[in-house]
Measured scan of single mutants.
Amino acid sequence: KLLSSIEQACDICRLKKLKCSKEKPKCAKCLKNNWECRYSPKTKRSPLTRAHLTEVESRLERLE
Results as ranks from 00 to 15, higher is better:
1 K>F: 13
1 K>D: 07
1 K>Y: 10
1 K>I: 05
1 K>G: 15
2 L>E: 15
2 L>W: 13
3 L>G: 13
4 S>F: 13
5 S>G: 11
5 S>Q: 11
6 I>H: 11
7 E>P: 10
8 Q>K: 08
8 Q>A: 11
8 Q>P: 08
8 Q>S: 12
8 Q>Y: 13
10 C>A: 06
10 C>M: 08
10 C>L: 01
10 C>F: 03
10 C>S: 01
11 D>E: 02
12 I>W: 15
12 I>S: 07
12 I>Q: 11
12 I>D: 10
13 C>M: 06
13 C>E: 06
13 C>H: 03
14 R>K: 09
15 L>P: 04
16 K>M: 01
16 K>R: 04
16 K>H: 00
16 K>C: 05
17 K>Y: 04
17 K>A: 05
17 K>D: 02
17 K>E: 01
17 K>F: 02
17 K>S: 04
18 L>P: 10
18 L>K: 00
18 L>H: 11
18 L>E: 00
19 K>I: 04
20 C>K: 06
20 C>F: 07
21 S>G: 05
21 S>V: 01
21 S>C: 02
22 K>V: 08
22 K>P: 06
22 K>L: 05
23 E>A: 12
23 E>Q: 15
24 K>P: 07
24 K>H: 13
25 P>A: 04
25 P>M: 04
25 P>L: 00
26 K>M: 13
26 K>N: 15
26 K>S: 13
27 C>Y: 04
27 C>L: 02
27 C>A: 00
28 A>N: 10
28 A>T: 13
29 K>S: 05
29 K>M: 07
30 C>P: 01
30 C>E: 05
31 L>E: 13
31 L>R: 15
31 L>D: 14
32 K>Q: 10
32 K>S: 09
32 K>R: 15
32 K>P: 03
32 K>V: 09
33 N>A: 10
33 N>F: 09
33 N>S: 14
34 N>E: 15
34 N>T: 14
34 N>Q: 15
35 W>R: 14
35 W>H: 13
36 E>S: 14
36 E>I: 08
37 C>Y: 09
37 C>S: 05
37 C>E: 02
37 C>A: 08
38 R>D: 08
38 R>E: 15
38 R>V: 10
39 Y>M: 06
39 Y>L: 06
39 Y>H: 08
40 S>E: 03
40 S>V: 07
40 S>M: 03
41 P>W: 06
41 P>V: 07
41 P>E: 07
41 P>S: 05
41 P>C: 05
41 P>F: 02
42 K>N: 09
42 K>S: 08
42 K>H: 09
44 K>A: 13
44 K>G: 03
45 R>M: 04
45 R>D: 00
45 R>W: 02
45 R>K: 06
46 S>N: 01
47 P>D: 10
48 L>N: 02
48 L>S: 04
48 L>A: 01
49 T>Y: 08
51 A>Q: 12
51 A>L: 09
53 L>T: 00
53 L>W: 07
55 E>A: 14
55 E>Y: 14
55 E>W: 14
55 E>P: 02
56 V>A: 00
56 V>I: 06
58 S>H: 15
58 S>F: 14
58 S>N: 13
58 S>T: 12
58 S>R: 11
59 R>M: 07
61 E>W: 13
62 R>L: 12
62 R>P: 09
63 L>C: 07
63 L>R: 09
63 L>V: 02
63 L>A: 04
